[in-house]
Each structure stands twice: as structure tokens, then as C-alpha cells.
């Protein structure tokens, strides 16, 4: 499969900052991949997202999105390909109603009113928010707001969706709703959609095909979720919660019970405990 994102030796330093937010960072993402980017607060994850959308301009290095270099002349072409959902649902509403808000991106792209009337209900339906089309965004829950933000992105059909800690401010129910909406969209669009999720949430990271770990502005590790999760308690340093099965493993280990070294998900852990129990 083709690479849809290429980041080559990119460095970026914020004005007034003493250190590089990104330090000679390189990575590639294949078309249709779902990649989770993890790292603790301040590791440079969000800076990378902003560079991909030309919200920031790299000091050195090059970014390529869907074969287009991310440079000033291509700015609008690139932004058409990349939709972003940010952390705070309050910060991304412009419309007086939910439907108006979804219309915003379409209006910006000069889509005809007739076309918009087709697209908006479809996009809202995708995230199960069609019943709220005429409501004021203010009265929605956090999870509902994020799903409306997602509908606004679905409406303009980008090739890449970047979720920049999009579920960090939500309660557990809202988080599940948003993740479910993205999973559904990804299942429908298959390789036509690439998802980049910047997250601390273990459940969100577990849905990815691949996890890239960023620390101090550099890629320090990458692999399938099971490979990365087997780091156990060290995951905390990488800015991710430790999966519960791994927490239990290290708690048992501390009590002198020998545990398998390979990563087990919860079901695997239950099976292992069950076998151990019946052997005794």
C-alpha cells in the first residue's frame, strides 16, 4: 500500500522555547492504516498533528500528505485531505445549530446548498446525531459535541482524520460513543480512510493497527498494540495507561507468582489464570 503521510527529518521549536518540540523526526503512514501516536504531555505529539495540517511550519525537514508537499501553496489542498478533531469540544463550534455547524466546512469549500442538504443529514446519521440537527450545540454533552465535530469532518470526506486527544475530556460513556462512531466510519470506508489518533487512552490505542511512541520530539518505538502493551508498567513513562491485565500481571509478579512474559489481553489473562487454577 502507498504511503499517505511521510514525515522526513522534521524539526520544530516554538518561539520562546528552550528546546525542540520535534527533533529530526521521521515516520511514514500507509494509506488506510489506523495509527495511534502516544507520548506523555509535552512529547511533541500535537505539534506533529499541527504540522501535518500546515497550522505550524517546520523549521527544517519535509512533510508529504497524499503526495502533496505540505507547503504554503498547497495549504488548502492539504487541509482538504486532513480533518482534525481537537481535544476541547467547546473550542470548535461556529454554527448556531448542529446542522449549521456541520455546514461550515461545506460552505468553506463552496458546496451548493442543494448538495449540502443531502450531505449534512448523512453525516449526522453516521454519528447518530440526526435527531439533534436543529439543536444548539451548547446544550449537548461532551460526547455529543465531539460526534458533531466528527460529522463536520465526515461531511467534507477527507482522506485522513486526525484525532488530537479527541476523547480526553469526555466521560467514559462519551468516550465509548466517539470511538464507536470512528470505528463504524473506518469499517465503512476501509482503506479510503486513514486514521491518526493522538491519545493517552488505552482503549483508543488498542483499536489501532500500529502504535508509534514519541518522546522528546523523536520516535522511540513502534509496533502492533500487543507488542507495545507488553512493555507493562513502563507504558506509564510513554504517556499511556497500563492495560489492566498487565497491571494485574505485575501485581501478581510482585507477590512472587511467575507470570507469562508475553502480552495478554483480558481474555488471555482470564484463560491463563483459569488454567493455573485447574492445574493446582
Amino acid at each position: 500500500m502507498d504511503n499517505i503521510i511521510e514525515v522526513k527529518n522534521v524539526s520544530y521549536q516554538y518561539p520562546n522555547s528552550d528546546y525542540k518540540a520535534l527533533d529530526n523526526l521521521s515516520l511514514t503512514i500507509r494509506k488506510g492504516e489506523w495509527v495511534a501516536i502516544i507520548g506523555h504531555n509535552g512529547s511533541g505529539k500535537s505539534t506533529l498533528a499541527k504540522l501535518l495540517n500546515y497550522l505550524l511550519v517546520p523549521d527544517t525537514g519535509e512533510l508529504i500528505v497524499d503526495k502533496q508537499p505540505v507547503i504554503e501553496e498547497n495549504m488548502w489542498t492539504v487541509r482538504n485531505k486532513v480533518g482534525m478533531v481537537f481535544q476541547n469540544p467547546e473550542n470548535q463550534f461556529v454554527g448556531a445549530t448542529v446542522a449549521d455547524d456541520v455546514a461550515f466546512g461545506l460552505e468553506n469549500r463552496g458546496i451548493s446548498r442543494q448538495k449540502m442538504l443531502e450531505i449534512i443529514p448523512m453525516a449526522l446519521k453516521e454519528v447518530h446525531m440526526e435527531a439533534f440537527a436543529d439543536r444548539e450545540p451548547t446544550y449537548l454533552s461532551g460526547g455529543q459535541k465531539q460526534r458533531v465535530a466528527l460529522a463536520g469532518i465526515i461531511a467534507v470526506a477527507p482522506k485522513i482524520i486526525i484525532l488530537d486527544e479527541a476523547t480526553a475530556m469526555l466521560d467514559p460513556k462519551g468516550r465509548k460513543e466517539v470511538i464507536a462512531a470512528i470505528l463504524k466510519l473506518k469499517a465503512r470506508l476501509g482503506d479510503e480512510l486513514t486514521v491518526l489518533s493522538i491519545t493517552h487512552d488505552i482503549d483508543e490505542a488498542a483499536d489501532a493497527d500500529r502504535i508509534i511512541v514519541i518522546n522528546d520530539g523523536q520516535v522511540v518505538d513502534e509496533g502492533r498494540p500487543a507488542e507495545i502493551f507488553s512493555a507493562g508498567p513502563k507504558l506509564l513513562e510513554l504517556g499511556l495507561d497500563v492495560p489492566f491485565a498487565e497491571q494485574l500481571k505485575s501485581a501478581l509478579n510482585n507477590l512472587g507468582i511467575s507470570v507469562p512474559s508475553k502480552y495478554l489481553d483480558e481474555e488471555g489473562m482470564i484463560n491463563w489464570l483459569w488454567q493455573l487454577n485447574s492445574k493446582m
Binding site: 506523555h40 504531555n41 481535544q87 486527544e165 480526553a168 475530556m169 493517552h200 506509564l236 513513562e237 504517556g239 499511556l240 495507561d241 497500563v242
Partner: peptide, 10 residues
């Protein structure tokens, strides 16, 4: 602790 990473939360 909303919005903090796991170490920050702890």
C-alpha cells in the same frame, strides 16, 4: 485530572 497524561494524573 481531565486532560492530563497518566503520570500527570497520578
Amino acid at each position: 485530572t481531565a486532560g492530563l497524561d497518566p503520570v500527570g494524573r497520578k
